[in-house]
Amino acid sequence: MIPRYRSYHSYSDRLLQDTAYLKSNSNLTERIVDKIILQLNRVYPQVLSNKEAEKFRSLKTPLRTRLSDLVKHLQRKGERECQEFYRAVQNNADKVYATLPSRNNLNTSELLEISPHQEKMILNDNGPVFFLACFSVAAGLAFFMYYNNPEVKSSGSAKKVFGFSAIGFGRHIRNILISFLDDTALSN
């Protein structure tokens, strides 16, 4: 039997480490904490029941007390619930999430989380128009080189390929392509 060791960087341990920071952070307003609680209540499967969510959203209790009680409650429930809490904080208070003490202590080789802004920069910062322009240039050059090949012109296979490619387009573009093929057939 293999013993199971609890990771030092489990979500429960991270939540314990971040509790004081979360309670003292002025960026966590009533509205943001309510959004976090609602997300925990609405996620499937539910982390917080309706009754628990009402308890933690009660305006009779001070915000910091509710937040402290919520953290303790989630730690008792388990690891998945603590993970969902971090996901909710990231979705609703990204600035707070980025400055959590446990995130600063994490070794990047153990838990690597990329923000949406960093992911966009990694993939491509130019956007979809740049991609379409590059694709159009590449497709145009390929078509030009294929169509200007003397072996292809004599066999007429380029016209067949060009004619069949019209099938995938809309009615208006298809008519233009077919009329172009008819014009080139009459000129030969």
Rank of each mutant, 00 (worst) to 15 (best):
E81F: 06
N92L: 05
Q46N: 14
P150D: 11
L48A: 07
L48G: 04
K77S: 00
V89W: 00
S179P: 00
L123C: 01
H73R: 15
R14W: 02
L74V: 07
S155N: 09
I176F: 09
A139M: 09
H9T: 15
T65A: 14
N124G: 10
R4S: 13
D18M: 08
Y86R: 04
R6F: 04
I176L: 04
K77M: 10
L22F: 10
L48T: 09
E119R: 11
K153G: 04
K55Q: 14
A185K: 15
Y5A: 11
H172I: 03
F164I: 06
K120T: 06
L100D: 06
L186E: 14
A20N: 12
L100E: 00
V152K: 07
N188L: 13
Y8V: 15
N91L: 12
I2S: 14
A138E: 02
S136D: 08
N50E: 14
D13P: 08
A20S: 13
S109A: 05
S165M: 04
D18W: 04
L22P: 05
N91E: 12
Q75G: 11
K35F: 10
N188I: 12
G156H: 08
A158I: 02
L74Y: 04
G163A: 03
A166T: 10
L112C: 08
H9K: 12
P101A: 08
Y147I: 11
T99E: 08
K60D: 07
L70A: 04
I167Q: 05
Q90F: 06
N25E: 12
L111M: 12
E151M: 11
N105K: 12
P150W: 05
Y86L: 01
I114W: 03
H117T: 13
A88K: 06
S157G: 03
A93E: 02
K72I: 13
Q39S: 13
E79D: 05
R174E: 02
R4C: 08
L177H: 03
G170A: 07
I122Y: 04
I36P: 00
L141F: 01
P101K: 03
Q83R: 15
L63D: 09
V33I: 15
N104D: 08
M121W: 03
E84C: 04
L38T: 14
F162E: 05
I37E: 07
K77D: 10
P3C: 12
L100N: 05
Y86F: 10
E52T: 00
S187Y: 12
E81Q: 11
E113V: 11
Y97D: 02
K160E: 06
R64C: 00
